[in-house]
């Protein structure tokens, strides 16, 4: 039952390419000729010391920030100048480093909002209130319930999202993004502030989604999580890609150790 609902969560993954992204804030270069390729069925981790530009890169991919130069392509199409909501409609979904729940909505309503289509959320649909719209909304609700079962938050469904714990809010964000049928899922520090049992739920979910063909990327500091979940690791430092490859390859690189521990003088 749960499995059947869960099967519909992701559509087929897409390829996302960020090419030669440059972005500076004032005089500070946050990203320097930064490139990243995300592929269907693969989990890519972006790691690096604080201030390396990881979240900035996620913001460029998601559309919150526009790069000074370089381009972002989704399945080959240039989406560099597309606003975030249009990228989301193409299936590019992201979560935030500090969970941004919609605090005035319940957990369940957060998911309903994400899953409800444009036809049923039109004001005229509200006034007409046809049976077709009610049925469509009920289908969204069923899907939301299935996802909450999957992440183990059914008991909290009707709580205001603002009342959830930090870890529960992170799960809410992932579940909410999954309501939109993503093709690419970008998670910004999914385990920050998350208790170990919830982090395991997240790790399993991420692996399962990638196995189903979804394109997944995340920024993370927890190296156990990275090792367990990521197929491919990209190391950023001072806005540049320092290394990429498997976890073992990357962590054995001298430059990476230097970047994290500080260069020996």
């Amino acid at each position: 039952m749960t499995g059947a609902m869960y099967d519909q969560i992701s559509s087929k993954g897409a390829t996302l390419e960020a090419r030669n992204i440059d972005l500076s804030f004032g005089g500070v270069a946050a990203l320097v000729r930064c490139s990243l390729r995300l592929e269907p069925g693969r989990v890519t981790a972006v790691i690096g010391p604080n201030g390396a530009g990881k979240t900035t890169l996620m913001d460029v991919i998601g559309g919150r920030l526009r790069p000074d130069s370089g381009e972002v392509r989704l399945d080959g199409a240039d989406i560099s100048r597309m606003p975030p909501h249009r990228r989301a409609r193409l299936g590019l979904l992201r979560t935030f480093q500090i969970a941004r729940e919609l605090e005035g909505l319940t957990l369940f309503e957060n998911l309903l909002l994400a899953g409800q289509g444009r036809a049923i959320e039109h004001p005229l649909a509200a006034l007409a209130g046809g049976r077709r719209h009610r049925r469509a909304e009920a289908a969204v609700a069923a899907r939301a319930h299935g996802l909450l079962e999957r992440v183990g938050l059914v008991g909290q469904a009707d709580l205001p999202a603002g009342a959830l714990s930090g870890g529960q809010k992170k799960l809410l964000e992932v579940a909410r993004a999954l309501m939109v049928s993503p093709r690419i899922l970008v998670l910004d520090e999914p385990t920050a502030g998350v208790s170990p049992p919830l982090a395991r739920v997240l790790a399993d979910l991420t692996r399962d989604l990638a196995r189903e063909g979804l394109t997944v990327a995340f920024v993370e500091h927890d190296m156990d999580f990275v090792q367990n979940v990521a197929d491919h690791v990209v190391v950023l430092a001072e806005g540049q890609v320092l290394a990429s490859g498997s976890f073992a390859e990357v962590t054995g690189t001298r430059d990476v150790i230097d970047a994290y521990l500080g260069r020996a003088a």
């Binding site: 909501h85 989301a88 979904l93 941004r100 919609l102 005035g104 909505l105 309503e109 993004a177």
Partner: peptide, 15 residues
């Protein structure tokens, strides 16, 4: 209500 609470989140959900 979503737009009121956090318009950035609403936009990232395709709204």
């Amino acid at each position: 209500r979503a737009v009121r609470d956090d318009d950035v989140v609403a936009a990232t959900l395709g709204k």
